[in-house]
């Protein structure tokens, strides 16, 4: 491989990681945008999503990389994996919000944030106790189709990951821009009290933002599994931290910012791993984050001082 090919290859890898981080970052940003809450349970909702996707695919007869599908069965199997993990994660998110965070709605201080950390550990330990701590072989039914681009290779799984992430992000964009509920969500994020006085049921909007954010974490978990062919109980921390960094980098609370931040973090991770070795990628990611925040404290697309009175 030439240097150009290597660069191209890392670009491809970086975009796939970026797709995963973007979807995950959206969950942080949606919840933060509406409630100014950093939802640490999101890390492990993502991990649970990956586990659910794995169990779903296994339930449909897949195991490891031995069963290869094509055509309609492939598409349907993948759709089922995404759908089940997204819907179940969505409900887990709603449950966390409804039963653990809503009672704390009017409590000032870090109580809600601490609760999300607690929930994160509960999810972690539940999976640890039921599925164990070993690294699991995530089923991948994709045929090993590759498209050579010069000396680099684009695998079918990459194309699939990009398409899935793009569809989900376009759908989210459509939802927030053009639907009544999506507009209510934006209005609530900009001024919750004013939105309430327009007749918006703010509790419902919060619940929906948890559902959407957590469902995207479920999709992201399935993408993680397909990309790495593995699932592991501690996978949430590294990926979650990078996704959270992506949300902050893009401007937390800002939806396009989370998408952009995720892609940037993915690219930086892949390219720095190539150039300096993977041990360095965290150093590069977090140094860049610090640098960006020094010069743009609100993130790349964020605004300082949300317009509130």
């Amino acid at each position: 491989m030439t240097a150009v090919d290597l660069f191209l290859q890392q670009l491809i890898n970086g975009l796939s990681l970026g797709a995963m981080y973007s979807l995950l970052a959206l969950g942080f940003t949606l919840v933060y945008g509406i409630m100014e809450l950093i939802n640490f349970s999101h890390f492990n909702v993502f991990m649970v999503g990956c586990m659910i996707a794995m169990l779903t695919l296994q339930a449909m007869g897949l195991s490891g990389q031995t069963v290869i599908l094509s055509g309609a069965p492939l598409v349907l199997t993948l759709l089922a994996g995404f759908a089940v993990s997204m819907v179940l994660c969505g409900f887990i998110g709603v449950g966390i919000e409804r039963f653990l965070l809503r009672p704390l709605r009017n409590v000032k201080g870090p109580a809600a944030m601490i609760t999300t950390i607690g929930v994160s550990y509960v999810l972690f330990n539940l999976v640890l106790l039921t599925l164990g701590s070993d690294s699991k072989n995530f089923p991948n039914p994709l045929p090993p189709v590759v498209f050579p681009i010069g000396g680099a290779v684009l695998r079918l799984r990459e194309v699939l990951i990009w398409i899935t992430a793009a569809v989900l992000m376009l759908a989210l964009n459509y939802f927030t821009r053009y639907t009544k509920l999506g507009k209510a969500m934006r209005a609530t994020a900009q001024d919750a009290e004013a939105a309430r006085m327009m007749g918006v049921e703010v509790d419902r909007v919060i619940m929906i933002s948890f559902f959407i954010g957590s469902a995207l974490a479920g999709a992201s978990g399935m993408i993680f599994g397909l990309y790495y062919n593995l699932a592991k109980v501690d996978m949430g921390f590294a990926a979650g931290l990078r996704a959270f960094t992506a949300a902050v980098l893009g401007g937390i609370g800002n939806v396009p910012g989370a998408m952009l931040g995720g892609v940037l973090i993915g690219l930086i991770e892949a390219l720095s791993a190539q150039a300096l070795g993977s041990a360095w990628s965290d150093v590069v990611i977090f140094s860049l984050l610090v640098l960006v925040l020094v010069f743009r404290p609100a993130g790349l697309l964020g605004r300082l001082a949300p317009n509130k009175s």
Partner: peptide, 25 residues
């Protein structure tokens, strides 16, 4: 229906979207 103190429009929504929010119910 309120007209709020300090107006409290949704600053990053268009005027049309603000009017739509008025008709939310």
């Amino acid at each position: 229906v309120p007209v709020l103190e300090a107006r409290r429009l949704f600053p990053r929504m268009t005027i049309y979207e603000n009017l739509e929010m008025g008709a939310y119910t």
